[in-house]
Simulated scan of single mutants.
Amino acid sequence: MARPLTADIDLNALRHNYQLACELAPDSRSVAVLKADAYGHGAVVCARTLEDLAPAFAVAAIEEAVVLREAGIKVPIVLLEGIFSADELETVDALGLSMAIHSDWQLQAVQDFSPRKPIPVWLKVDSGMHRLGFHPEHAEQAWKRLQSLPDKVTDVHLMSHFATADMTDDRYFLSQFNLLQELAERLDAPTCLANSPTVLAHSEAHGAWNRPGVMLYGSDPLELSSDTSRRLQPVMSLRSEIIAVRELGKGEPVGYGGRYVTQGPARIGVVACGYGDGYDRHAVDGTPVLVDGRRTAIAGKVSMDMLTVDLSDLPEADIGSEVVLWGKSRHGAVLSVDEVATYCDTISYTLLTGVLPRVPRRYR
């Protein structure tokens, strides 16, 4: 009998979420973002699930692209951070990859390289995120340099990243978008600007390409959910079982440090899941879980291999009862990973990408 903790991956939900992204932007092509092992869901399986739908995939780095190519994925792949050294251009060329260019040294490396066929590139502009990208005042010169290299690059697009597209206050988003729109019009340049919150909430920024990421996996990236974002379906269900039950009296401490103290007679369930599996140790008392489809909460600090939950109001729960840490219960209830993340003072991205390899992924 194996340890009962699994990450169950609903591939039909993945396809649904990708198709929703396409539905919201019918005049755009949607590149499916598979970086960080498809946000913890398994990049190869997710790529195979979407390869008949998606015209391209995106990853962060060349190592992630190599994994997909070695698995037989032939769909175009974009390197969202481009190359990290000039010698990677040999692999870019050999594997037929596309790449972002965000700095002068990358542009010069491409200019000095002789590919077997021109490399599709996305010129990244720093419109206000202040991570990667050409300053807007220098982007036009970089664009013209790329346009002068038809034997080396092709299909040049403008790319940028919005810092606040998920927020209800859209003033900074609009300042970024207006800057990019003016630049794109001046250069007559196609764009790839829309990340998940932009796809969901800012149709004015949909471009020739969009790049939905976390929304593909069912997480709602918006500060305030919308009717559209509520159509997303969770892809990962982190599921375990009760492995022991403790009957305690009033005033009994539970777990490391005795953070949680029973307020009266209590039933405490022990769950096979802990921070050694990637569940966030910062989860506070009261963090929701589903036990046999009913909501209850964590009671006590998360341990490496276990956590404890309050079963006092669930008299029928016992050893073997299903526990869903986030996702869909077999009983029909759903617990959003976004809600769990708020109790851990983090975001869904860190929970999903943080599920460690010892947790088996089960695909359906």
Rank of each mutant, 00 (worst) to 15 (best):
E64R: 04
R259T: 15
Q106C: 07
V33K: 09
V125W: 01
L107C: 12
A142L: 01
E23A: 09
A86V: 11
S98K: 08
G269A: 02
V75W: 04
E252D: 10
V66A: 09
L149N: 13
E90C: 11
D155V: 00
E204H: 13
A208S: 11
L174I: 08
G96V: 06
V245Q: 07
L53M: 13
S196V: 08
V334D: 08
D8H: 14
S175D: 11
L20C: 09
Q141D: 13
E140K: 14
V156R: 02
V324T: 01
T346A: 03
P212V: 01
V153C: 08
A7G: 08
A266H: 10
L222V: 07
A317Q: 13
K250F: 12
V324S: 07
A297H: 14
K117Y: 10
S160Y: 02
A341E: 00
V121Q: 05
K144P: 00
V110Q: 03
G332P: 08
L123F: 01
L216H: 07
Q19N: 09
R358G: 09
L180M: 15
R239S: 06
K117H: 10
P357V: 11
R145D: 02
S348C: 05
E316M: 08
P55G: 07
E252F: 13
G286W: 05
H282R: 14
S348F: 04
T198D: 09
R295M: 14
I268V: 13
